[in-house]
Amino acid sequence: MIDKTTNQKAWFLVAPVVVLVAFNALIPLMTVVNYSVQETFGDNIFFWEGVKWFEQVLHSERFHDSLLRQLSFTSIILLIEVPLGVAVALSMPKKGPWVSVCLVLMALPLLIPWNVVGAMWNIFALPDIGLLGRMINGIGFDYNFTQQPTAAWFTVILMDVWHWTSLVTLLAYAGLCSIPDAYYQAARIDGASSWSVFRYIQLPKMKRVLTIAILLRFMDSFMIYTEPFVLTGGGPGNSTTFLSIDLVKIALGQFDLGPAAAMSLIYFLIILLLSWVFYTLMMRNEEQ
């Protein structure tokens, strides 16, 4: 018979990870779950409410509006940033001294703190003193992002494109650099047009990095808070109130902890679901 020795010391070895995960994920998440099913009063008095807050959030027009704004914002910036990022990556030099210059210039926007980006663009776009704002008004457009919803959207999108296109560019560039010269040479001998080279060599080789780029941009833009908060504060009116801005208003402005917790969970599930859909769609062909 084999004697099985049980060594309980092993638990000590996994303990640090358990504690870490508990503190940074499980406990905060469970706290939110806890708030989402109860009514909270002062002195930590709780009443069980079941799924009431979830129903309330899912049926609230306010939530529908911010979700719609959020979806539109994310779609627009993905549609602009991904093709633009790829185009910039394609036109960057492959070797020579300009490579490092381009890479540093590209990385600059990514290094600026988010609230600074918001503040910068706020001043930049002000219609009376900002360079951009005065210029647009100067060429004959009536532009004031603090008062017109369209102007606010235009500014928020422009700011995001400025801030984040570089990320797509850098990832796409990395993908492009990994293509061996032989592919381009073979394509030349095969008489391929530059569109064919892009379609059959560059795009397939960039697929993996682009998947990562799209996922990152999707998740980040879907959770965007700091930049539009500093730039427009969610206004004018509610026109640029995206999900996380709305969430903070409910949780910290109105102190409605129950609905805010329920909304957080719904918000989280939407991101999880959409990320999964994106990933599955883009990786679908790999399996065949």
Binding site: Y183, A186, R188, I189, D190, G191, Y200, P204, K205, N285
Partner: peptide
């Protein structure tokens, strides 16, 4: 240019168009 020379070349590492 190469494509007008009517030549074929096989490289050290195989070149195939992955998606085709």
């Amino acid at each position: 240019p190469s494509d007008k020379r009517h030549i074929a070349q096989v490289f050290q590492f195989p070149v195939v168009y992955d998606t085709m």
